[in-house]
Design a protein around this nucleic acid. Structure first.
Lengths: 229, 229
DNA sequence: GTCTATACACAGATAGAC
DNA sequence: GTCTATCTGTGTATAGAC
Protein backbone atom coordinates (compact mmCIF):
# COMPACT_ATOMS: atom_id res chain seq x y z
CA UNK A 1 0.00 0.00 0.00
CA UNK A 2 1.33 3.43 -0.90
CA UNK A 3 0.34 6.84 0.40
CA UNK A 4 -2.23 7.58 -2.26
CA UNK A 5 -4.03 4.33 -1.57
CA UNK A 6 -3.95 5.03 2.15
CA UNK A 7 -5.32 8.51 1.66
CA UNK A 8 -8.20 7.30 -0.48
CA UNK A 9 -9.03 4.52 1.93
CA UNK A 10 -8.88 6.72 4.99
CA UNK A 11 -12.26 8.34 5.27
CA UNK A 12 -11.84 11.27 7.61
CA UNK A 13 -11.09 14.76 6.32
CA UNK A 14 -10.45 18.02 8.11
CA UNK A 15 -14.15 18.76 8.39
CA UNK A 16 -14.85 15.38 9.95
CA UNK A 17 -12.15 15.95 12.53
CA UNK A 18 -13.63 19.33 13.39
CA UNK A 19 -16.99 17.61 13.84
CA UNK A 20 -15.48 15.06 16.20
CA UNK A 21 -13.96 17.89 18.21
CA UNK A 22 -17.35 19.57 18.37
CA UNK A 23 -19.16 16.44 19.52
CA UNK A 24 -16.54 15.67 22.15
CA UNK A 25 -16.56 19.16 23.64
CA UNK A 26 -20.10 20.33 22.98
CA UNK A 27 -20.90 20.84 26.65
CA UNK A 28 -18.11 23.41 27.05
CA UNK A 29 -19.10 25.48 24.03
CA UNK A 30 -21.59 28.31 23.96
CA UNK A 31 -22.28 27.58 20.31
CA UNK A 32 -25.16 25.21 19.77
CA UNK A 33 -25.63 25.01 16.00
CA UNK A 34 -23.45 22.19 14.73
CA UNK A 35 -22.94 23.63 11.28
CA UNK A 36 -21.64 26.96 12.55
CA UNK A 37 -19.52 25.35 15.21
CA UNK A 38 -17.87 22.84 12.89
CA UNK A 39 -17.08 25.43 10.24
CA UNK A 40 -15.51 27.80 12.76
CA UNK A 41 -13.65 25.07 14.62
CA UNK A 42 -12.09 24.07 11.34
CA UNK A 43 -10.89 27.66 10.89
CA UNK A 44 -9.64 27.83 14.48
CA UNK A 45 -7.69 24.58 14.27
CA UNK A 46 -6.07 25.52 10.98
CA UNK A 47 -5.09 28.88 12.42
CA UNK A 48 -3.61 27.36 15.57
CA UNK A 49 -1.47 24.98 13.55
CA UNK A 50 -0.35 27.68 11.19
CA UNK A 51 0.66 30.07 13.97
CA UNK A 52 2.20 27.56 16.37
CA UNK A 53 4.25 25.77 13.75
CA UNK A 54 6.51 28.79 13.67
CA UNK A 55 6.52 30.01 17.23
CA UNK A 56 4.85 27.51 19.50
CA UNK A 57 1.61 27.54 21.43
CA UNK A 58 2.81 29.64 24.35
CA UNK A 59 3.97 32.38 22.03
CA UNK A 60 0.68 32.42 20.15
CA UNK A 61 -1.51 35.12 21.62
CA UNK A 62 -5.27 35.06 21.50
CA UNK A 63 -4.97 38.24 19.44
CA UNK A 64 -2.86 36.35 16.90
CA UNK A 65 -5.57 33.74 16.72
CA UNK A 66 -8.27 36.35 16.39
CA UNK A 67 -6.44 37.99 13.51
CA UNK A 68 -5.77 34.72 11.67
CA UNK A 69 -9.29 33.34 12.00
CA UNK A 70 -10.97 36.66 11.31
CA UNK A 71 -13.05 36.09 14.45
CA UNK A 72 -13.11 38.43 17.41
CA UNK A 73 -11.68 37.58 20.81
CA UNK A 74 -15.15 37.35 22.28
CA UNK A 75 -16.28 34.94 19.57
CA UNK A 76 -13.26 32.68 20.10
CA UNK A 77 -14.06 32.28 23.78
CA UNK A 78 -17.44 30.89 22.83
CA UNK A 79 -15.68 27.82 21.40
CA UNK A 80 -13.46 26.95 24.33
CA UNK A 81 -13.21 28.07 27.96
CA UNK A 82 -9.61 29.27 27.76
CA UNK A 83 -6.32 28.95 25.98
CA UNK A 84 -5.17 26.07 28.14
CA UNK A 85 -8.33 24.12 27.43
CA UNK A 86 -7.86 24.68 23.71
CA UNK A 87 -4.49 22.98 24.04
CA UNK A 88 -6.03 19.99 25.80
CA UNK A 89 -8.79 19.69 23.24
CA UNK A 90 -6.32 19.48 20.37
CA UNK A 91 -4.04 17.08 22.21
CA UNK A 92 -6.92 14.79 23.16
CA UNK A 93 -8.23 14.66 19.63
CA UNK A 94 -4.74 14.00 18.25
CA UNK A 95 -4.23 11.06 20.57
CA UNK A 96 -7.63 9.66 19.77
CA UNK A 97 -6.93 9.71 16.03
CA UNK A 98 -3.63 7.87 16.37
CA UNK A 99 -4.91 5.23 18.73
CA UNK A 100 -8.02 4.58 16.71
CA UNK A 101 -6.12 4.20 13.43
CA UNK A 102 -3.24 2.08 14.69
CA UNK A 103 -5.48 -0.33 16.57
CA UNK A 104 -7.54 -0.73 13.43
CA UNK A 105 -4.55 -1.48 11.21
CA UNK A 106 -3.03 -3.87 13.74
CA UNK A 107 -6.20 -5.94 13.63
CA UNK A 108 -6.36 -6.07 9.84
CA UNK A 109 -3.45 -8.43 9.18
CA UNK A 110 -2.64 -11.87 10.54
CA UNK A 111 0.92 -12.66 9.58
CA UNK A 112 3.36 -10.86 11.92
CA UNK A 113 5.54 -9.46 9.15
CA UNK A 114 2.53 -8.13 7.26
CA UNK A 115 1.10 -6.75 10.47
CA UNK A 116 4.38 -5.01 11.29
CA UNK A 117 4.52 -3.45 7.86
CA UNK A 118 0.90 -2.36 8.02
CA UNK A 119 1.28 -0.66 11.39
CA UNK A 120 4.49 1.15 10.50
CA UNK A 121 3.06 2.31 7.20
CA UNK A 122 -0.23 3.39 8.76
CA UNK A 123 1.54 5.48 11.38
CA UNK A 124 3.76 7.31 8.92
CA UNK A 125 1.03 7.80 6.33
CA UNK A 126 -1.32 9.09 9.02
CA UNK A 127 1.33 11.53 10.20
CA UNK A 128 1.62 12.76 6.64
CA UNK A 129 -2.12 13.18 6.26
CA UNK A 130 -2.45 14.99 9.60
CA UNK A 131 1.03 16.41 9.90
CA UNK A 132 0.05 19.52 11.86
CA UNK A 133 -1.67 17.41 14.48
CA UNK A 134 1.34 15.17 14.94
CA UNK A 135 3.85 17.99 15.08
CA UNK A 136 1.68 19.92 17.50
CA UNK A 137 1.08 16.92 19.74
CA UNK A 138 4.77 16.31 20.09
CA UNK A 139 6.02 19.86 20.45
CA UNK A 140 3.34 21.14 22.79
CA UNK A 141 3.08 18.12 25.07
CA UNK A 142 5.12 19.74 27.81
CA UNK A 143 2.72 22.67 28.08
CA UNK A 144 0.07 20.28 29.33
CA UNK A 145 -0.79 19.88 32.99
CA UNK A 146 0.60 16.72 34.62
CA UNK A 147 -2.55 14.71 33.89
CA UNK A 148 -2.37 15.58 30.21
CA UNK A 149 1.30 14.80 30.02
CA UNK A 150 0.70 11.44 31.64
CA UNK A 151 -1.81 10.69 28.93
CA UNK A 152 0.85 11.48 26.33
CA UNK A 153 3.30 9.11 27.97
CA UNK A 154 0.66 6.38 28.20
CA UNK A 155 -0.07 6.80 24.50
CA UNK A 156 3.61 6.58 23.63
CA UNK A 157 3.86 3.35 25.55
CA UNK A 158 0.68 1.99 24.02
CA UNK A 159 1.91 2.40 20.46
CA UNK A 160 5.28 1.02 21.47
CA UNK A 161 3.55 -2.05 22.84
CA UNK A 162 1.63 -2.61 19.63
CA UNK A 163 4.98 -2.90 17.88
CA UNK A 164 6.78 -4.99 20.48
CA UNK A 165 3.82 -7.40 20.67
CA UNK A 166 4.05 -7.99 16.95
CA UNK A 167 7.78 -8.61 17.26
CA UNK A 168 7.28 -11.08 20.12
CA UNK A 169 4.63 -12.91 18.18
CA UNK A 170 6.87 -13.08 15.13
CA UNK A 171 9.77 -14.37 17.16
CA UNK A 172 7.58 -17.15 18.56
CA UNK A 173 6.74 -18.13 14.99
CA UNK A 174 10.40 -18.07 13.98
CA UNK A 175 9.95 -15.14 11.62
CA UNK A 176 11.91 -12.58 13.65
CA UNK A 177 15.25 -12.87 15.36
CA UNK A 178 15.30 -12.94 19.16
CA UNK A 179 16.19 -9.44 20.33
CA UNK A 180 15.26 -6.77 22.82
CA UNK A 181 11.94 -6.07 21.16
CA UNK A 182 11.07 -3.19 23.46
CA UNK A 183 14.14 -1.38 22.32
CA UNK A 184 13.48 -2.20 18.68
CA UNK A 185 9.98 -0.82 19.05
CA UNK A 186 11.48 2.41 20.41
CA UNK A 187 13.74 2.69 17.38
CA UNK A 188 10.83 2.18 15.02
CA UNK A 189 8.92 4.91 16.79
CA UNK A 190 11.91 7.21 16.51
CA UNK A 191 12.06 6.68 12.77
CA UNK A 192 8.35 7.33 12.40
CA UNK A 193 8.60 10.52 14.36
CA UNK A 194 11.45 11.77 12.23
CA UNK A 195 9.06 12.11 9.33
CA UNK A 196 6.84 14.73 10.89
CA UNK A 197 9.42 16.45 13.08
CA UNK A 198 11.79 17.27 10.24
CA UNK A 199 9.54 17.63 7.26
CA UNK A 200 11.46 20.71 6.03
CA UNK A 201 14.48 18.48 5.46
CA UNK A 202 12.67 15.92 3.36
CA UNK A 203 10.83 18.53 1.39
CA UNK A 204 14.15 20.14 0.58
CA UNK A 205 15.79 16.83 -0.34
CA UNK A 206 12.75 15.86 -2.45
CA UNK A 207 12.15 12.66 -0.53
CA UNK A 208 8.55 11.47 -0.72
CA UNK A 209 6.68 9.73 2.04
CA UNK A 210 6.66 6.51 0.01
CA UNK A 211 10.44 6.57 -0.33
CA UNK A 212 10.77 7.26 3.36
CA UNK A 213 8.46 4.43 4.38
CA UNK A 214 10.28 1.97 2.14
CA UNK A 215 13.60 2.89 3.67
CA UNK A 216 12.28 2.51 7.19
CA UNK A 217 10.80 -0.87 6.36
CA UNK A 218 14.03 -2.03 4.71
CA UNK A 219 15.99 -1.03 7.76
CA UNK A 220 13.61 -2.62 10.22
CA UNK A 221 13.28 -5.84 8.27
CA UNK A 222 17.02 -6.05 7.72
CA UNK A 223 17.42 -6.04 11.45
CA UNK A 224 14.44 -8.07 12.61
CA UNK A 225 13.99 -10.86 10.08
CA UNK A 226 15.49 -14.21 11.00
CA UNK A 227 18.24 -15.17 8.58
CA UNK A 228 17.31 -17.95 6.18
CA UNK A 229 19.74 -20.82 6.47
CA UNK B 1 34.33 2.54 23.94
CA UNK B 2 31.53 2.82 26.50
CA UNK B 3 29.99 5.89 28.09
CA UNK B 4 32.28 5.94 31.13
CA UNK B 5 35.36 5.89 28.96
CA UNK B 6 33.94 8.65 26.79
CA UNK B 7 33.12 10.76 29.81
CA UNK B 8 36.63 10.42 31.26
CA UNK B 9 38.26 11.17 27.94
CA UNK B 10 36.06 14.16 27.21
CA UNK B 11 37.69 17.05 29.00
CA UNK B 12 35.07 19.77 29.20
CA UNK B 13 32.82 20.14 32.21
CA UNK B 14 29.98 22.52 32.96
CA UNK B 15 32.35 25.17 34.26
CA UNK B 16 34.45 25.01 31.10
CA UNK B 17 31.37 25.47 28.97
CA UNK B 18 30.37 28.50 31.02
CA UNK B 19 33.85 29.90 30.44
CA UNK B 20 33.53 29.39 26.69
CA UNK B 21 30.21 31.21 26.77
CA UNK B 22 31.85 34.07 28.66
CA UNK B 23 34.76 34.36 26.27
CA UNK B 24 32.52 34.25 23.23
CA UNK B 25 30.11 36.92 24.50
CA UNK B 26 32.37 39.06 26.66
CA UNK B 27 31.78 42.22 24.64
CA UNK B 28 28.03 42.11 25.33
CA UNK B 29 28.38 41.65 29.08
CA UNK B 30 28.72 44.38 31.68
CA UNK B 31 30.58 41.98 33.93
CA UNK B 32 34.33 42.14 33.48
CA UNK B 33 35.78 39.81 36.11
CA UNK B 34 36.01 36.35 34.57
CA UNK B 35 35.67 34.43 37.79
CA UNK B 36 32.42 36.14 38.80
CA UNK B 37 31.01 35.94 35.29
CA UNK B 38 31.76 32.25 34.82
CA UNK B 39 30.31 31.24 38.17
CA UNK B 40 27.10 33.17 37.56
CA UNK B 41 26.76 32.06 33.96
CA UNK B 42 26.92 28.49 35.18
CA UNK B 43 24.06 29.22 37.55
CA UNK B 44 22.08 30.99 34.85
CA UNK B 45 22.50 28.20 32.32
CA UNK B 46 21.52 25.53 34.81
CA UNK B 47 18.46 27.54 35.79
CA UNK B 48 17.39 28.08 32.18
CA UNK B 49 17.59 24.35 31.45
CA UNK B 50 15.76 23.43 34.59
CA UNK B 51 12.91 25.86 33.98
CA UNK B 52 12.55 25.39 30.23
CA UNK B 53 12.64 21.62 30.33
CA UNK B 54 9.16 21.72 31.78
CA UNK B 55 7.56 24.69 30.12
CA UNK B 56 9.71 25.98 27.32
CA UNK B 57 11.73 29.13 26.81
CA UNK B 58 8.85 31.41 25.87
CA UNK B 59 6.97 30.49 29.01
CA UNK B 60 9.98 31.13 31.23
CA UNK B 61 9.75 34.66 32.56
CA UNK B 62 12.78 36.67 33.58
CA UNK B 63 11.28 36.64 37.07
CA UNK B 64 11.31 32.83 37.04
CA UNK B 65 14.95 33.00 36.15
CA UNK B 66 15.64 35.57 38.82
CA UNK B 67 14.02 33.38 41.45
CA UNK B 68 15.81 30.21 40.39
CA UNK B 69 19.27 31.79 40.17
CA UNK B 70 18.84 33.88 43.29
CA UNK B 71 19.98 36.88 41.24
CA UNK B 72 17.94 40.02 40.75
CA UNK B 73 16.45 41.08 37.43
CA UNK B 74 18.93 43.93 37.18
CA UNK B 75 21.86 41.61 37.74
CA UNK B 76 20.68 39.16 35.08
CA UNK B 77 20.61 41.87 32.46
CA UNK B 78 24.29 42.50 33.10
CA UNK B 79 25.03 39.08 31.59
CA UNK B 80 23.08 39.34 28.37
CA UNK B 81 21.34 42.17 26.52
CA UNK B 82 17.90 40.57 26.50
CA UNK B 83 15.96 37.34 26.68
CA UNK B 84 16.17 36.75 22.96
CA UNK B 85 19.94 37.15 22.97
CA UNK B 86 20.18 34.67 25.84
CA UNK B 87 18.45 32.15 23.60
CA UNK B 88 20.92 32.76 20.78
CA UNK B 89 23.89 32.49 23.10
CA UNK B 90 22.80 29.06 24.30
CA UNK B 91 21.95 27.84 20.82
CA UNK B 92 25.26 29.02 19.38
CA UNK B 93 27.25 27.35 22.11
CA UNK B 94 25.27 24.12 21.72
CA UNK B 95 25.96 23.98 18.02
CA UNK B 96 29.62 24.73 18.51
CA UNK B 97 30.00 21.85 20.97
CA UNK B 98 28.39 19.32 18.65
CA UNK B 99 30.29 20.36 15.57
CA UNK B 100 33.61 20.47 17.37
CA UNK B 101 33.19 17.03 18.91
CA UNK B 102 31.85 15.21 15.87
CA UNK B 103 34.48 16.60 13.52
CA UNK B 104 37.12 15.48 16.00
CA UNK B 105 35.80 11.94 16.28
CA UNK B 106 35.35 11.61 12.54
CA UNK B 107 39.04 12.36 12.04
CA UNK B 108 40.19 9.86 14.65
CA UNK B 109 39.46 6.65 12.78
CA UNK B 110 40.42 5.43 9.34
CA UNK B 111 38.38 2.37 8.57
CA UNK B 112 34.85 3.39 7.48
CA UNK B 113 33.06 0.96 9.79
CA UNK B 114 35.11 2.08 12.79
CA UNK B 115 34.61 5.69 11.83
CA UNK B 116 30.86 5.18 11.56
CA UNK B 117 30.74 3.56 14.96
CA UNK B 118 32.90 6.27 16.51
CA UNK B 119 30.75 9.10 15.18
CA UNK B 120 27.45 7.52 16.18
CA UNK B 121 28.75 6.71 19.63
CA UNK B 122 30.29 10.14 20.11
CA UNK B 123 27.04 11.88 19.22
CA UNK B 124 24.89 9.84 21.57
CA UNK B 125 27.40 9.94 24.41
CA UNK B 126 27.79 13.68 24.01
CA UNK B 127 24.04 14.10 24.10
CA UNK B 128 24.01 12.14 27.34
CA UNK B 129 26.76 14.26 28.87
CA UNK B 130 25.13 17.53 27.81
CA UNK B 131 21.57 16.39 27.63
CA UNK B 132 20.03 19.75 28.63
CA UNK B 133 21.90 21.49 25.82
CA UNK B 134 20.70 19.01 23.22
CA UNK B 135 17.11 19.01 24.35
CA UNK B 136 17.08 22.78 24.51
CA UNK B 137 18.68 23.19 21.11
CA UNK B 138 16.05 21.01 19.48
CA UNK B 139 12.96 22.25 21.28
CA UNK B 140 13.71 25.95 21.18
CA UNK B 141 15.07 26.16 17.65
CA UNK B 142 11.85 27.59 16.28
CA UNK B 143 11.98 30.55 18.66
CA UNK B 144 15.08 31.77 16.88
CA UNK B 145 15.02 34.50 14.30
CA UNK B 146 15.34 33.26 10.67
CA UNK B 147 19.12 33.62 10.66
CA UNK B 148 19.45 31.49 13.77
CA UNK B 149 17.07 28.89 12.44
CA UNK B 150 19.04 28.69 9.22
CA UNK B 151 22.15 27.96 11.28
CA UNK B 152 20.28 25.09 12.93
CA UNK B 153 19.31 23.65 9.57
CA UNK B 154 22.86 24.01 8.28
CA UNK B 155 24.14 22.17 11.34
CA UNK B 156 21.63 19.37 10.84
CA UNK B 157 22.80 18.97 7.28
CA UNK B 158 26.45 19.13 8.26
CA UNK B 159 26.16 16.24 10.71
CA UNK B 160 24.09 14.32 8.20
CA UNK B 161 26.82 14.75 5.64
CA UNK B 162 29.47 13.45 8.03
CA UNK B 163 27.47 10.23 8.19
CA UNK B 164 26.62 9.93 4.52
CA UNK B 165 30.25 10.60 3.54
CA UNK B 166 31.36 7.71 5.70
CA UNK B 167 28.75 5.48 4.11
CA UNK B 168 29.81 6.48 0.58
CA UNK B 169 33.42 5.83 1.42
CA UNK B 170 32.56 2.44 2.86
CA UNK B 171 30.53 1.52 -0.17
CA UNK B 172 33.47 2.36 -2.42
CA UNK B 173 35.59 0.00 -0.35
CA UNK B 174 32.97 -2.75 -0.58
CA UNK B 175 32.23 -2.65 3.13
CA UNK B 176 28.74 -1.20 2.92
CA UNK B 177 25.86 -2.09 0.65
CA UNK B 178 24.90 0.36 -2.07
CA UNK B 179 21.91 2.28 -0.78
CA UNK B 180 20.44 5.76 -0.52
CA UNK B 181 23.05 6.90 1.98
CA UNK B 182 21.49 10.32 2.50
CA UNK B 183 18.35 8.64 3.71
CA UNK B 184 20.26 6.21 5.89
CA UNK B 185 22.12 9.13 7.46
CA UNK B 186 18.75 10.71 8.26
CA UNK B 187 17.62 7.52 9.97
CA UNK B 188 20.76 7.39 12.05
CA UNK B 189 20.22 10.97 13.13
CA UNK B 190 16.66 10.17 14.08
CA UNK B 191 17.82 7.34 16.29
CA UNK B 192 20.41 9.53 17.96
CA UNK B 193 17.87 12.21 18.65
CA UNK B 194 15.50 9.76 20.21
CA UNK B 195 17.89 9.36 23.11
CA UNK B 196 17.71 12.92 24.32
CA UNK B 197 14.18 13.73 23.25
CA UNK B 198 12.58 10.87 25.20
CA UNK B 199 14.89 10.36 28.10
CA UNK B 200 11.97 9.88 30.51
CA UNK B 201 11.04 6.71 28.65
CA UNK B 202 14.47 5.14 28.89
CA UNK B 203 14.92 6.13 32.50
CA UNK B 204 11.61 4.45 33.25
CA UNK B 205 12.49 1.32 31.27
CA UNK B 206 15.94 1.18 32.88
CA UNK B 207 17.74 1.29 29.58
CA UNK B 208 21.26 2.66 29.85
CA UNK B 209 22.99 4.74 27.24
CA UNK B 210 25.38 1.86 26.51
CA UNK B 211 22.50 -0.51 25.81
CA UNK B 212 20.91 2.10 23.61
CA UNK B 213 24.06 2.75 21.61
CA UNK B 214 24.64 -0.97 21.07
CA UNK B 215 21.13 -1.40 19.77
CA UNK B 216 21.46 1.52 17.38
CA UNK B 217 24.77 0.18 16.09
CA UNK B 218 23.37 -3.32 15.65
CA UNK B 219 20.48 -1.94 13.67
CA UNK B 220 22.60 0.32 11.49
CA UNK B 221 25.20 -2.34 10.80
CA UNK B 222 22.56 -4.97 10.08
CA UNK B 223 21.26 -2.69 7.38
CA UNK B 224 24.46 -1.18 5.99
CA UNK B 225 27.04 -3.95 6.00
CA UNK B 226 27.58 -5.79 2.75
CA UNK B 227 26.57 -9.44 3.08
CA UNK B 228 29.53 -11.83 3.13
CA UNK B 229 29.20 -14.40 0.40
C1' DG C 1 -23.45 34.28 17.80
C1' DT C 2 -20.47 37.95 17.25
C1' DC C 3 -18.84 42.30 18.10
C1' DT C 4 -16.17 46.37 20.77
C1' DA C 5 -14.31 48.02 24.77
C1' DT C 6 -12.02 47.27 28.73
C1' DA C 7 -10.32 45.06 33.25
C1' DC C 8 -6.36 43.52 35.38
C1' DA C 9 -2.19 40.69 35.70
C1' DC C 10 2.26 40.08 34.25
C1' DA C 11 5.78 40.34 30.74
C1' DG C 12 10.56 42.41 29.41
C1' DA C 13 13.44 45.93 30.34
C1' DT C 14 15.79 50.09 32.64
C1' DA C 15 17.22 53.84 36.12
C1' DG C 16 19.67 54.96 39.75
C1' DA C 17 20.89 53.99 44.71
C1' DC C 18 24.23 51.29 47.11
C1' DG D 1 28.27 44.17 40.42
C1' DT D 2 23.97 43.91 42.41
C1' DC D 3 19.93 45.58 44.25
C1' DT D 4 14.91 47.73 44.41
C1' DA D 5 11.50 50.27 42.27
C1' DT D 6 9.21 51.30 38.30
C1' DC D 7 7.98 52.16 33.21
C1' DT D 8 5.39 50.51 29.41
C1' DG D 9 3.57 47.08 26.39
C1' DT D 10 1.01 43.01 25.88
C1' DG D 11 -1.19 38.93 27.69
C1' DT D 12 -5.77 36.40 28.89
C1' DA D 13 -10.25 36.97 29.74
C1' DT D 14 -14.94 39.12 30.33
C1' DA D 15 -19.10 42.41 30.11
C1' DG D 16 -22.59 43.97 27.67
C1' DA D 17 -24.33 46.08 23.19
C1' DC D 18 -26.12 44.47 18.87
Amino acid sequence: MNYDAFKKGYGARHKDIARQVFLANQENMRIKKEKTAVANLEKILAAVFSITYKKGFQAMSMRDLSLKTGMSLGALYAYFPGKEELLSIIQDQGRYMVKDTLDRFARQEDHPLEKLRAVIRAHIFLSELFRPWFYFTFMEARNLKPAGFDAVKAMEEHTQKILSDILEEGEAEGIFRPENHELTACMIKALQQEWYLKRWKYTRQKITVDMFVDHVLAMVEGFCLAVKE
